[in-house]
Design a protein around this nucleic acid. Sequence first.
DNA 1: CTGTATCCCATGAGATACTG
DNA 2: CAGTATCTCATGGGATACAG
Lengths: 128, 128
Amino acid sequence: MAHPTTSISEQELVLCGQGRELVRDVLERIGDKWSVVVICQLGHTTKRFNELRRLSEPITQRMLSATLRSMERDGLVTRTLHDTKPLRVDYALTPRGLSLLAVARHLAGWAVDNAAGIQESREVFDAP
Amino acid sequence: MAHPTTSISEQELVLCGQGRELVRDVLERIGDKWSVVVICQLGHTTKRFNELRRLSEPITQRMLSATLRSMERDGLVTRTLHDTKPLRVDYALTPRGLSLLAVARHLAGWAVDNAAGIQESREVFDAP
DNA sequence: CTGTATCCCATGAGATACTG
DNA sequence: CAGTATCTCATGGGATACAG
């Protein structure tokens, strides 16, 4: 890991200064509706388009296509076209994609740990 | 930490099953335009509305208000109204908010580490 | 099988003005 | 000071149909 136990002050600097746009950028990457789902479904194994589509249900064809392309653009997945008939395309996470997978899992851990508590807070807040 | 070295298979289960909605939920919470900024600016210290507003520039009054309220609803911040004149309201992260701060910093670490590489990948991808 | 092209609408968020 | 109320517009993303 590159930031294992970075000091708090350093991280605060990062988040308060120029780093803010970087962080926003990452959040746009990971915060859209499907990226994390696709990243997690891809995991460490290569998968085909329709395979991913089934695993990521109810994603639409359009959104899977768009999500994969912007991930490819960011160097998170590789796209390999096998020139067979019928067509066959394989997707796999790159090393960078795998490192994002780790972050996504960290996030997922927090989500699972806090989902119930948040739900409860909301109910209290929304009460009469 | 609740999920320090959770096994991969367990996490994969979490992300593929019911956990998906939970994760989406968290991403909507943290993935909006201002939550992470506000969380980071709040950090470990109590702050007033306009103080936060300056620190989170160029956030609008409306969005800071909305962001803080949904964070309060989720039990991430506390809002304390001091009945003085002129009015004074203090905001601070709750323990849950602080745990999210840690996750946000993890994300920020990844962002900083990968921003340059992603930028480069994009340029290559977008090339003529 | 693996996509692209359109159309369409709900939502997120900025600008601005007003209030306790 | 600490908000709320409108208005407005860009965009994200679903449904559907078509294409290589």
